[in-house]
Amino acid sequence: MNQIIPKSNLKITQGGEPGKYTYYGDSGKGVHCYYCQHCTTHIYHHQEVMGDDTIIARTCILPEGRKNLPVGAEIYGKARFPWQKEVAQTFETLPPS
C-alpha cells in the first residue's frame, strides 16, 4: 500500500539517511527508490514524472497505515498476477492527473 503525498509531509525519524537507487519507468523518466540502509525496507519512491514535491510513501510499513488507510485505487494493474483479485478501481499504469 502506498500513499501519494507531498515530500514535505514525510518525516523520517529513525534509521538515518536512506539509501537510494534509480530505475527508469514507462515514461522514460527516473524513479528514485529510497530505502532503509539497515533493513532494506523501501520507505518511499520519487517518480520524476509526478513532479519535484510529490512522492509515493510506503504506508504499509506503518501500523497506523495498515489499520486506517483503506485501498482507494490499484495503480499499475498491468503488473498484477492473473490469480490476484482486483481490490479497488484499477489503472493499468498511472492514473490520469
Rank of each mutant, 00 (worst) to 15 (best):
Y21W: 14
P95R: 00
E64F: 15
L94Y: 12
Y35N: 05
L94I: 09
A88P: 09
A88Y: 01
C33W: 07
I61T: 06
P96H: 06
V49W: 05
P70K: 04
Q37L: 06
H46V: 10
S27F: 08
G28H: 09
V87Q: 10
P18I: 00
K67E: 15
G77F: 02
N68L: 10
V71K: 05
V49P: 04
E92L: 03
Q84Y: 14
G30K: 01
I61K: 04
G72R: 00
C39P: 11
F81L: 14
T13Y: 07
P96N: 01
N2E: 09
T22Y: 10
T90G: 06
R66G: 08
Y76F: 15
T59S: 08
C39E: 07
P70Q: 00
C33P: 08
D26P: 11
S8H: 14
R66N: 13
G28E: 14
T41N: 10
G16W: 01
Y34I: 01
R66D: 15
A73V: 03
A79E: 12
C33L: 09
A88G: 03
K67C: 02
I5D: 01
K85D: 13
R58W: 05
Q3H: 10
T54H: 07
G72A: 11
Y34R: 01
G16L: 02
I12M: 01
Q84N: 13
T22F: 12
K67T: 03
E74V: 00
K11Q: 13
Y21T: 03
D26M: 03
Y76V: 00
Q89I: 14
D53K: 05
R58M: 07
C36G: 09
M1S: 11
G15F: 00
F81I: 02
P70A: 05
T40K: 10
P82W: 04
E17N: 12
E92K: 04
C60V: 15
C36W: 01
Y35K: 05
C60M: 11
F91R: 00
P82T: 03
R58V: 06
R58S: 12
G72M: 12
K7V: 10
P70I: 09
E64L: 12
E92N: 14
S8V: 04
Q3D: 13
G30S: 14
I55E: 05
L10N: 12
D53V: 08
L69C: 06
N68H: 03
E48A: 02
Y24G: 02
T13H: 07
A73W: 05
F91L: 03
T54P: 09
G51R: 00
Q37E: 15
R80V: 00
D52I: 07
I5C: 08
G16C: 04
V71C: 12
K78A: 13
C39S: 02
R58H: 13
C39H: 11
L10F: 11
W83D: 13
M50Y: 14
P96V: 01
C39A: 08
W83V: 06
K78R: 13
K29P: 05
